[in-house]
Computed example of a mutant assay.
Amino acid sequence: MQRYFVPSNQWQDQTLTITDDDYHHIVNVMRMKEGQSIICSSNGMSYLCEIVQIHDKEVTCQVLEKLNENQELPITVTLAQGLPKGDKLDFIVQKATELGMKYFAPLQLDRSIVKWDHKKEQKKLERLRKIAKEASEQSHRAVVPTIHEKHTLKELFNNHSFDHCWVASELVAKEDVKHSPSFKEAIQQVKEGEHILLIVGPEGGFSDEEIHFLEELKCRSIRLGPRILRTETAPLYALSAMSFYFEEWRCEV
């Protein structure tokens, strides 16, 4: 069944209106008719709704019932990603959304080849927010991840607080597994409801200054296997492991 995220200001009691791109999708792509059912989400809740009237520029729906769904990770994950080249950021946001990421912060790091000016940043953020919304609908989530504006490392820690900070470092992957920081150890220390910050560097990795800054803040470097992962692979490895640990293995944390 098709799902749509409808802003709270388009709800009134048990009635809601759908406009813009979602209107186009319902009417022109899916060719839905009055009387058909869809699922609409807002503020973390999902509802089974019936299309009651299709107008020229909006679709009016009636709420039939509230759905009891639970597709969100039992922990909160912020992914802070060093700006990569090309369209890799689109891929990362799409897949990280499917895997349960709650917040996303693009990072301008020392070795980021890509530089965003203000005009380019706003266009990029608009695209990423659209990708996150579509990925949330596809994966049947009840919330759309928040896409923050571009941060520096200092801004990231000045503007937000976290229970755990993990750094995916290629230097750790090269170390002897018996002596390198353990992802297993780190994940076992997380309690349900806590907030994890996962920091991933760009293609060139982190500078010495950035590693020193993160160490000063007691951020923990974690080993994501013995191989050197691409910048777009590392966050998906970590999120997949967190999903398996907290949702499928059902460990008590």
Rank of each mutant, 00 (worst) to 15 (best):
R3A: 14
Y4D: 03
P7W: 08
S8Y: 06
N9E: 11
Q12V: 04
Q14G: 10
L16N: 03
T19C: 01
D22I: 01
H25N: 15
I26K: 05
N28Q: 14
N28A: 15
V29A: 12
V29F: 09
M32C: 06
K33F: 05
K33I: 06
K33Y: 07
S37P: 00
S37E: 12
I38D: 05
I39G: 02
C40E: 00
C40G: 05
S42Y: 01
M45I: 09
S46M: 00
S46P: 02
V52D: 09
I54C: 01
D56W: 01
D56A: 08
K57E: 12
K57R: 14
T60F: 00
C61H: 04
Q62R: 13
Q62F: 05
V63W: 07
K66T: 12
E72Q: 13
P74N: 04
I75S: 14
I75N: 13
I75R: 08
T76G: 03
T76H: 13
T78W: 02
A80E: 13
P84W: 12
G86K: 09
G86T: 09
D87K: 13
L89P: 02
L89F: 14
F91D: 14
V93A: 08
K95N: 02
K95C: 01
G100A: 05
Y103G: 04
A105T: 12
P106V: 14
Q108I: 11
D110Q: 09
R111W: 07
I113E: 14
V114D: 10
V114A: 15
D117R: 06
D117T: 07
K120I: 06
K120C: 13
E121N: 08
Q122T: 05
L125M: 12
L125V: 05
L125H: 03
K130I: 09
A135P: 15
S139H: 05
S139A: 06
S139Q: 06
H140A: 08
R141S: 00
R141Q: 10
T146C: 01
K150A: 15
K154T: 14
E155Y: 03
E155D: 06
H160G: 01
S161G: 07
D163K: 09
V167L: 13
A168C: 13
S169E: 10
A173K: 08
A173T: 15
K174N: 14
K174T: 15
K174P: 07
D176M: 13
S180V: 01
K184G: 09
K184N: 11
A186D: 09
I187N: 11
Q188D: 12
E194N: 10
H195G: 00
L197Q: 00
I199A: 11
V200K: 06
V200N: 15
G204D: 00
F206Q: 02
S207A: 10
D208T: 04
D208Q: 02
E209F: 02
E210L: 03
I211K: 07
H212R: 12
L217Y: 02
K218D: 13
L224C: 08
G225Y: 07
G225M: 02
G225S: 02
L229G: 07
T233F: 04
A234Y: 11
A234R: 11
Y237D: 03
A241C: 10
A241W: 06
S243K: 00
F244S: 08
W249M: 04
R250P: 09
